[in-house]
Design a protein around this nucleic acid. Structure first.
Length: 473
RNA sequence: GGCCCCAUCGUCUAGCGGUCUAGGACGUCGCCCUUUCACGGCGAAAACACGGGUUCGAUUCCCGUUGGGGUCACCA
C-alpha cells in the first residue's frame, strides 16, 4: 500500500427482499456500483431481511437475478442482515448501558391514543414516552428500547447530492431500536451493519434522507465515524409521482421480459439524473471513468419509455448477430408454436443484419423474424392481402417465371430479374416488389425484398410466389 | 397538516455571473435516401415557473410566492 493511498471507498446496496428489483433500486445500485468502481473501492450487497414476515427467498433470488442481469457484481458474498441480530442487540444494550437509550413500556394503546390526540389538536405527532426519564419499569412487562434522541439543537448533513440539510432535533423522535420481541429495527440494523462492514459512502434513494438524521443519532451516540451521504432523487412515472406498480413495468426483469437489453437499460438509468456533457451513449467503461456524485441532479426525473426504446434500438443494432439470435430464438418459439432447429438459428444469424435495424425491442425483433419460419400456405395480414389483389397475381406470375429461370440465387441476381420483369411489364418496381413482399412474408412491411428472397432460398421463395400468382398465365 | 427536498424545451439533460440570439438527446413535424418498414442524412417548432433583491451584469447567488415531490410505524 502506497503512502499516498486514499482511504478505500466502500459502498453498498441494501435492498429489502419483499419483491423484485425495482427500477429505482437498480439505479441507486448502479450509482453505488459506479462510484465504488470509479474509486477502485468495494461494492457490497446486503439483504435487509429483518422483517421476517415480509422477506422471501424468492424475492432474494429475484433481486440477485436482476443485479446479475445488469452486470452489477458485488464484492465478496452477499450479507444477510438477519444474521447480525445478536450484534444489533449488543449495540442497543451498549446504548442502554451508557444512557443513550431507554426501555419504553408504552403499550400500543397508549401510542395510538397519543397519535389520535395529536391529530385532533392538529399538531405534529411525536412519541413522548414517560419512560425516557424513568428506569423503574417492571422488567416482566414487554418493552421496546428507544434511542434517547437529543431534544435541543440541530443536526446537519452535508449530503453529496442534496447539499447541506439541517433539521431541528426537536423534530426527531425517540425511535425504536429493539422491538418488544428483542429483534432490531431497520434504523438500528442499517447503522450497525454499515459501520461493521466499513461502508464509507451511503448512496441511496432520497426517500431515506429523513432517516439519515435519525440514524446519525445512533452513530454519534456510539462515537462512530459518520459516512458520506448521497441521497439521489427518486424516479417518477409519467405523471410525476414516485414510480410504483400502477405505472406499469417497474421491475428490472420486467424490462428483460419486454425485450430490452441490459446495456440499454443501464445506459438509460445512468442518464436519468446524471449527465456528462452531451454524452448520450455511454459504455460501461466510460461510465466507470466518468461517474461522480457532483453531477447527480437534485430533482426527480420521469421515466420515459420512448427514450429507453431508442437506446435499446441503438444497442440492438450494435449487438453481435450471434448473441442476438440466441436472445431472440426463445422469443420466436412461442410465436410459431415450436422451437427453432439449429439450421433455423443459423438462418436467424444470417438474417440478423437485415432484421436488427428494424426493431426497438427483442420482442419486436422476434415478431419480425416469423416470416422465415412460417409454413405454407401463409396467412396474410390485411394490408398484405390488399397488395395481392388486382393485377398482382399476374405480375407475380411473370416475376416467378423470371426468377425460376435464374441459374444463380442471390440478392443481386433476383434483383436484376425482378427489375427487368417490371420494366418489361411497363410498371414501376414497386408494383412488382410490393406484391412480392406480401406473397413472401404475408406482411406489408419487411426487410428488403431481395434479401428476403435470398434468405428464404430458391425453393421456398418460388413456392410462396406460386401460391399467390395467377396460374392461368 | 408538520418537517425536508426540488424547479432550463412535452421528457432526460448541458450550463457551475458575462462565452446564452440557452447547447445535446428522445419525442413531434417537414425534406432527402428508398420497392415497404426501419436505419441513416438534413432541417423546423419547442425551455431558463413568477416576484423581489445582490451585482456594472443574472439561467447561474439570496429571499418570497406558486407548483411538484418525499417523509412522518415495534416496514424497510
Amino acid at each position: 500500500m502506497s503512502a499516498t493511498a486514499q482511504p478505500e471507498v466502500v459502498t453498498r446496496f441494501a435492498p429489502s427482499p419483499t419483491g423484485f428489483l425495482h427500477i429505482g433500486g437498480a439505479r441507486t445500485a448502479l450509482f453505488s456500483w459506479l462510484y465504488a468502481r470509479h474509486h477502485d473501492g468495494r461494492f457490497l450487497l446486503r439483504i435487509e431481511d429483518t422483517d421476517k414476515a415480509r422477506s422471501t427467498g424468492a424475492a432474494i433470488e429475484a433481486i440477485l437475478e436482476g443485479m446479475r442481469w445488469l452486470g452489477l457484481d458485488w464484492d465478496g458474498h452477499e450479507y444477510y442482515q438477519s444474521q447480525f441480530a445478536a450484534r444489533h442487540a449488543e449495540v442497543a444494550n451498549d446504548l442502554l448501558a451508557r444512557g443513550h437509550a431507554y426501555r419504553c413500556y408504552m403499550t400500543a394503546e397508549e401510542l395510538s391514543a397519543g397519535r389520535e390526540r395529536a391529530q385532533a389538536e392538529r399538531r405534529p405527532y411525536r412519541v413522548e414516552s414517560p419512560w425516557r426519564e424513568r428506569s423503574d419499569g417492571d422488567a416482566d412487562r414487554p418493552f421496546v428500547v428507544r434511542l434517547k434522541a437529543p431534544r435541543e439543537g440541530e443536526t446537519a448533513i452535508e449530503d453529496r447530492v442534496q447539499g447541506r440539510v439541517v433539521v431541528q432535533n426537536g423534530e426527531l423522535d425517540d425511535m425504536v431500536l429493539l422491538r418488544s420481541d428483542g429483534s432490531p429495527t431497520y434504523m438500528l440494523a442499517v447503522v450497525v451493519d454499515d459501520h461493521d462492514m466499513g461502508v464509507t459512502h451511503v448512496i441511496r434513494g432520497d426517500d431515506h434522507l429523513n432517516n439519515a438524521f435519525r440514524q446519525l443519532g445512533i452513530i454519534r451516540a456510539m462515537g462512530w465515524p459518520e459516512p458520506v451521504y448521497a441521497h439521489v432523487p427518486l424516479i417518477h412515472g409519467q405523471d410525476g409521482a414516485k414510480m410504483s406498480k400502477r405505472h406499469g413495468a417497474t421491475g428490472v426483469m420486467d424490462y428483460h421480459e419486454l425485450g430490452f437489453l441490459p446495456e440499454a437499460l443501464s445506459n438509460y438509468l445512468l442518464r436519468l439524473g446524471w449527465g456528462h456533457g452531451d454524452e448520450e451513449i455511454i459504455s460501461r467503461e466510460d461510465a466507470v471513468r466518468w461517474f461522480d456524485l457532483d453531477h447527480v441532479g437534485k430533482s426527480p426525473s420521469r421515466f420515459d419509455t420512448k427514450k429507453l426504446e431508442n437506446l435499446n434500438g441503438h444497442y440492438i443494432r450494435e449487438a453481435d448477430d450471434g448473441r442476438l439470435a440466441g436472445l431472440v430464438a426463445p422469443r420466436v418459439a412461442p410465436l410459431i408454436g415450436r422451437d427453432l432447429s439449429t439450421a433455423e438459428i443459423e438462418l436467424l444469424v444470417r438474417a440478423m443484419p437485415e432484421l436488427k435495424p428494424r426493431a426497438k425491442t427483442l420482442n419486436e425483433l422476434a415478431e419480425n423474424t416469423t416470416f422465415l419460419y412460417r409454413s405454407r400456405p401463409l396467412d396474410f395480414e390485411e394490408k398484405a392481402a390488399q397488395l395481392l389483389a388486382g393485377e398482382a397475381p399476374r405480375l407475380l406470375a411473370r416475376a416467378w417465371a423470371a426468377l425460376n429461370a435464374l441459374d444463380e440465387w442471390s440478392a443481386l441476381a433476383t434483383e436484376a430479374a425482378v427489375r427487368s420483369t417490371a420494366e418489361v411489364a411497363g410498371v414501376k418496381l414497386g408494383q412488382v416488389a410490393q406484391p412480392l413482399r406480401a406473397a413472401l412474408t404475408g406482411r406489408a412491411t419487411s426487410p428488403g425484398i431481395f434479401d428476403v428472397l435470398a434468405l428464404l432460398g430458391r425453393e421456398e421463395s418460388l413456392a410462396r410466389i406460386a401460391d399467390r400468382m395467377d396460374g392461368a398465365e
